[in-house]
């Protein structure tokens, strides 16, 4: 049996390098030898402001995690969105604001239920958690977006938080917040939608900032360590590109040949 899949050798080597970098950084941070600081992410700081404002105005907070579920390729963004949902739920419970969550994919409903409830428990207000504030609006893009738009408008939400993978519905959601004059905090790693969030929201999380949220909010050394490792893998990519560009210009093809293995 042939264990080597030609054409994918370099990919495997790269996978090993990236994994090694992340694991080493993770263990160093977890061991406490060095726990790096995470740079400021304004969008995440803004969530408390948004929740506070909704509380002052006595109006609810709208929260979605985009069109992601756990059974698609974008689940990592959904999980990041759920992470922030837990944080938002904790803040909402602490301040006594109403938090409305609109899942898109039915498979994340139980997880969202648990995450929100945990947030309320952390704030010491489990009894304030109402599962009916998780509102399922069907698993089809535009009906869902239109449902969120309508509900946000009728409930007159004062804060509009959207964190996860978004597609063409992103501007409809931003429009909903604009109609009600809500403070908008949005983040996605779908680069073809970030521009809407940058333009239409008060604070935007761009790309990987969304995934850094878990580490940023929890201050958990393990999560910070993996983020640190990911930084090293980006540095590796930059190094390979720079060396490769110079070698190719000098007509040395060794690196190109390796990458094509």
């Amino acid at each position: 049996m042939n264990f080597i899949n030609e054409g994918l050798v370099a990919s495997f080597a790269m996978l090993v390098i990236v994994l090694a970098e992340i694991l080493i950084a993770l263990f160093i941070a977890r061991g406490g030898t060095h726990v790096p600081k995470i740079r400021k992410i304004a969008g995440l700081e803004a969530i408390e402001e948004a929740v506070g404002r909704a509380t002052e105005m006595g109006r609810p907070i709208t929260y979605t995690t985009g069109l992601g579920g756990i059974r698609d390729q974008y689940y990592y963004q959904t999980v990041a969105g759920l992470n922030i949902l837990g944080h938002t739920a904790e803040l909402a419970a602490k301040y006594g604001a109403k938090l409305l969550y609109f899942p898109y994919d039915p498979t994340i409903m139980p997880m969202a239920h648990e995450v929100m409830e945990q947030g309320y428990i952390r704030a010491g207000k489990q009894e304030a958690f109402n599962p009916e504030n998780i509102i399922y609006l069907g698993g089809d893009q535009f009906p869902w977006a239109f449902g969120v738009l309508g509900t946000t408008y009728r409930e007159q939400s004062a804060a509009n938080i959207h964190m996860g993978p978004f597609w063409a519905e992103s501007l409809i959601l931003a429009e909903a917040g604009f109609y009600t004059g809500a403070i908008q905090v949005m983040g996605t790693a779908n680069y073809h939608q970030i521009h809407f969030f940058v333009v239409a929201s008060d604070y935007a999380l761009i790309g990987e900032e969304l995934m850094a949220a878990g580490a940023y909010l929890s201050k958990d050394p393990t999560q910070i360590g993996s983020l640190w490792g990911a930084d090293f893998s980006k540095l590796t990519a930059i190094a390979i590109m720079l060396i490769g560009v110079i070698l190719t210009a000098a007509n040395v093809t060794a690196l190109n040949d390796f990458l094509a293995l």
Binding site: G7, P165, A260
Partner: peptide, 30 residues
């Protein structure tokens, strides 16, 4: 118009099966 779409075909079909048909055009040696 979204996912699954072209990126998934690239990742889960094209990348996985590169070099399996020599009639396919050559891109960076594959």
């Amino acid at each position: 118009s979204g996912t699954p779409g072209e990126q998934q075909v690239i990742q889960f079909i094209q990348g996985r099966h590169q070099g399996e048909n020599t009639d396919w055009p050559l891109v960076r040696g594959e």
